[in-house]
């Protein structure tokens, strides 16, 4: 009896993805959507009133627009995004063999521009980059997040996790202090979420525009009075990667709407 239990336990240990201390178990993971009021949910739910869809619309036009010295459009290599890009964003950030590190969807778009279109990179948070990234990620809407599975990503996921656990700033708080330990409580009037990155780039009412997860992370860092990492820095990429792997199984919502 004890023997069988031991085996069962051993099997559980091997098959269940190792859950690190303090992490939210898969069946308790909740999108930021579930923390919102009915009016903000309604804004996200209806594509004809979701302001993020304006950017998706822009992205759709950019997808087939020829650009750069090569005079090529995204569509010239990738074809119809609705089939070709389906599920792609749910696997990002992904490992890039040539660079030997993970790259975000934004970085992948700019790598494509540099390598295949011979075009200048689009600046972080620029309308065109957000629009393209929203258009690509929108093709994964409803698909479960599956980022971080590639074993080559392991050290980068670990780095992101360490950063998530690292106290920083004058207020000396780590992401985990709020988003693992205190979600569902209220910081002043605002509910604390689990920080599941299911809908990026997303339309934040506070911003009144679409923004990337990097912008959101930087604003949290400012919140604890820490020096925010630069856009595209290895730290922000690692954090995004960890957050996406932490959200595994949750469906993508791009473009989400959040307060």
């Amino acid at each position: 009896m004890i023997f069988w239990r031991a085996i069962a336990a051993a099997i559980l240990l091997v098959t269940a993805p190792a859950l690190l201390a303090g992490e939210i178990p898969p069946d308790a993971r909740r999108s930021g959507y579930s923390f919102m009021g009915p009016d903000t949910r309604a804004m996200q739910d209806d594509d004809t009133s979701n302001p993020g869809m304006l950017f998706v619309l822009d992205g759709e036009a950019l997808w087939s627009k020829k650009t750069g010295d090569a005079g090529k459009a995204c569509a010239d290599c990738h074809g119809d995004a609705r089939s070709g890009m389906k599920g792609v964003a749910a696997r990002y950030p992904a490992f890039d063999k040539a660079l030997a590190r993970p790259v975000t969807l934004d970085q992948r778009i700019n790598l494509c521009r540099a390598n295949h279109q011979q075009a200048t990179p689009l600046p972080y948070e620029s309308r065109d980059l957000l629009a393209l990234s929203a258009y690509v990620a929108h093709q994964s809407r409803g698909i479960s997040i599956a980022a971080g599975d590639d074993p080559q990503l392991k050290p980068f996921v670990d780095q992101g996790r360490d950063l998530f656990m690292q106290r920083e700033g004058q207020l000396n708080l780590a992401c985990t202090n709020c988003h693992d330990d205190n979600f569902d409580k209220r910081l002043a009037g605002a509910p604390i979420t689990q920080a599941q990155p299911t809908g990026y780039p997303l339309y934040r009412l506070e911003w009144q525009t679409l923004g990337s997860i990097e912008r959101r992370l930087r604003s949290c860092m400012s919140g604890v009075r820490a020096q925010a990492y630069d856009y595209g820095s290895p730290e922000l990429v690692a954090l995004e990667l960890y957050l996406m792997s932490r959200a595994r199984g949750l469906p993508m919502e791009t473009p989400a709407v959040r307060p």
Partner: peptide
């Protein structure tokens, strides 16, 4: 600037229809 327009493609004469519009603007 892009706009999202939502008008029913078809309607019966006399129907009251809803029209929704969303357009890109900073509104500074």
């Amino acid at each position: 600037m892009p706009a999202l327009i939502n008008v029913p493609a078809k309607a019966k004469r006399g129907d009251i229809i809803e029209i929704r519009t969303l357009t890109s603007h900073i509104m500074e």
